[in-house]
């Protein structure tokens, strides 16, 4: 019966979303596409941040890498779907190599190291003008399609990625990998002693946190037709998924999706009128969450999921 529930619930949501695509107008399609993108980012961060307890700030790096990979391949004449898949593969391999280098760091060290990755990549993209267009950005080929059809097309593309991320999350959470990751989160040394190959598990989780963000970036690039380094590697792309996951519930299956939905509504209702102070208000929201809901959203989930680090 329980198995029936866990499959039925998401299927109903999926059916509603598909039906919605043929009813909603362009504005709602745009919003829904953003929501799905946020869900991909939040579910992906959940692999490394929520399940393994490693505060990764690398989401922006994966997103930007995927966006540029997809855009460059498409400009070179590679078919769109293939370029999206390539973006996923490339981002995943990148995450594997990066993970091997920085995943033996813990706590603050890991967080900042992952944060600088996006900065470094942005510099590289900015400087490598022949390939990436540098600070001028990159224009993508425009689809020969009706505007509404186009909106619907990218909505479905994002839906496929989001659904895949969700299904994989469900599989991982219930499987051996998810169990191993939650062991690592609670006590990595103990997990190691008990036979969990912590390094391999962590790298795997890190790769999982990248493979869907890459295609999401590539789809985003095709959707908005134009990318630039400051936009594709925006540090907020690393922060927002964390806020969403914490809002919804870290380490759970539905939490990131719920968080992404709540965050999008908040973003749309509160911030669309204050575009110049967007990140400032996001900052204020974060501060208020941490300070005034210590028992509510952040602390309860965070305390359950992340070990306290002892002061030196």
């Amino acid at each position: 019966m329980r198995r029936f529930d866990t499959i039925l619930g998401p299927l109903v949501v999926l059916a509603l979303l598909i039906g919605f695509a043929f009813v909603g107008d362009n504005y709602f399609l745009r919003l829904a596409t953003f929501m799905l993108m946020y869900a991909v980012l939040a579910l992906s961060w959940n692999f490394i941040g929520g399940m393994a307890g490693y505060p990764s700030f690398a989401t922006a790096a994966f997103f930007g890498l995927g966006a540029y990979c997809g855009a460059i391949l498409q400009k070179a004449g590679v078919p769109m779907f293939l370029s999206w898949a390539a973006a996923g593969l490339f981002t995943g391999v990148f995450a594997m190599l990066l993970g091997r280098a920085i995943l033996h760091l813990k706590g603050h060290y890991f967080a900042i190291a992952s944060l600088i990755v996006a900065e470094a990549l942005r510099e590289v993209v900015n400087t490598w003008t022949e390939l990436t267009g540098g600070g001028m950005g990159l224009n993508l080929p425009v689809l020969q399609m009706d505007v509404t059809d186009q909106a619907r097309f990218f909505f479905f593309a994002m839906l496929v990625v989001a659904a895949s991320t969700f299904v994989l999350s469900a599989v991982v959470i219930r499987g051996k990998l998810g169990f191993g990751l939650s062991c690592i989160k609670q006590n990595e040394d103990a997990a190691n002693i008990l036979g969990v190959d912590a390094t391999r598990y962590k790298v795997f989780a890190f790769v999982l946190s990248a493979v869907f963000v890459g295609p999401a970036g590539a789809i985003y690039a095709g959707w908005v037709n134009y990318i630039e380094p400051a936009d594709a590697f925006d540090v907020l792309l690393s922060v927002k998924p964390i806020v969403m996951v914490i809002l919804g519930g870290a380490g759970t299956l539905y939490g990131p999706v719920v968080g992404a939905f709540a965050f999008l509504i908040l973003e749309e209702v509160v911030w669309r009128n204050v575009l110049t102070f967007h990140s400032g208000l996001l900052g204020l929201l974060i501060v208020l969450l941490v300070l005034f809901m210590p028992q509510g959203l952040i602390r309860v989930t965070a305390r359950r999921l992340f070990r306290r680090t002892a002061a030196p």
Partner: peptide, 13 residues
């Protein structure tokens, strides 16, 4: 004194 993610998120905000 709270977990890394909390203090980090706070100063990030």
């Amino acid at each position: 004194g709270q977990p890394v993610l909390v203090t980090l998120t706070l100063t990030f905000g």
